[in-house]
């Protein structure tokens, strides 16, 4: 297998006396779906927030490699720079959309850094230079292509807050993808979706994996999603990694069964 896209090495996060993540090590590959699972409070979201820069890890290294072998030390970077330069996009457990702005506007904001450059940091934009107009049209086209892919094109001019829950989840993924990421981090993308919507989500994630040259890292509770689409599963319990492998391997791992179901005292 080629070089991993993301290498997490001995990641540790302590909040005072509580060790939420305890020297966890794993890799994420390009064109793979990697799932992090575990019981409540296992440290999944904490690990996730460390990777996306919303927490500064207490210890450990997180290295992201681009195709041109450029390496980014994510543990040293600020959250917005991780998205801007290292190209890591994320979604949130409780959806965070710009509710008062339309679907199209949401997707345009995701292309902010690119458009800022095209508008010559606003100066060219004020005079509506041709190069800015072109960039704006291109950004709209890209937004439209993502709306088509997640199937919300007919709601393009509606405010994001007016969308049904399932469509909001899809929009958040589309918005993350509009930042041109190399790693897409999804925090419980299937939470609150009905079986049909879960099925659509699976198809969407597979298509992103196969066509967009990104690695997907996701946290999920919904085992129907995890077992079906994951190429690689990491199981955390009490902040430690207890298992790591394919869906079948993990499913049959006694440590995983013990963590989820407990063991009978003999």
């Amino acid at each position: 297998m080629s070089q991993p896209l993301l290498t997490v090495n001995n990641l540790t996060m302590r909040f005072g006396g509580l060790t939420a993540v305890d020297s966890v090590t794993f890799d994420v590959y390009r064109n793979h779906i990697t799932a992090v699972i575990g019981p409540n409070g296992a440290g999944k979201t904490t690990a996730f927030n460390c990777i996306t820069g919303f927490y500064k890890p207490t210890d450990g290294q997180i290295v992201l490699r681009h195709k041109d072998d450029k390496e980014f030390k994510l543990e040293e970077m600020e959250d917005f720079r991780i998205s801007q330069h290292a190209k890591v996009a994320r979604t949130f457990q409780n959806i965070r959309l710009f509710g008062g702005m339309t679907v199209l506007e949401n997707l345009m904001i995701a292309q902010h850094n690119h458009l800022m450059k095209a508008s010559a940091y606003t100066i060219g934009g004020i005079f509506n230079t041709p190069s800015y107009q072109r960039a704006q049209e291109a950004a709209k086209k890209k937004a439209l292509s993502w709306m088509d892919r997640v199937g919300i094109t007919d709601r393009a001019d509606d405010p994001a807050a007016a969308l049904p829950y399932g469509a909001q989840r899809k929009l958040e993924i589309a918005r993350a993808m509009c930042t041109d990421p190399v790693l897409l981090c999804l925090d419980e993308p299937a939470a609150g979706l009905n079986p049909k919507e879960s099925e659509e989500l699976n198809a969407l994630l597979r298509s992103i994996r196969d066509h967009d040259d990104v690695g997907i890292l996701l946290i999920e509770h919904d085992m129907s999603v995890v077992m079906e689409i994951s190429d690689h599963i990491i199981v955390l319990d009490y902040g430690r990694k207890i298992s790591d492998g394919t869906a079948t391997e993990v499913r049959n791992d006694p440590a995983v069964i013990k963590a989820y179901l407990g063991v009978v005292e003999e």
Partner: peptide
Amino acid sequence: RLPIGRAWEALREDEIACRSLGINT
């Protein structure tokens, strides 16, 4: 109507989401 103005409004709507999209808040 420029990216900067949209970013201002996005900031009002949700600052954390802005940061996750690489906007220097």
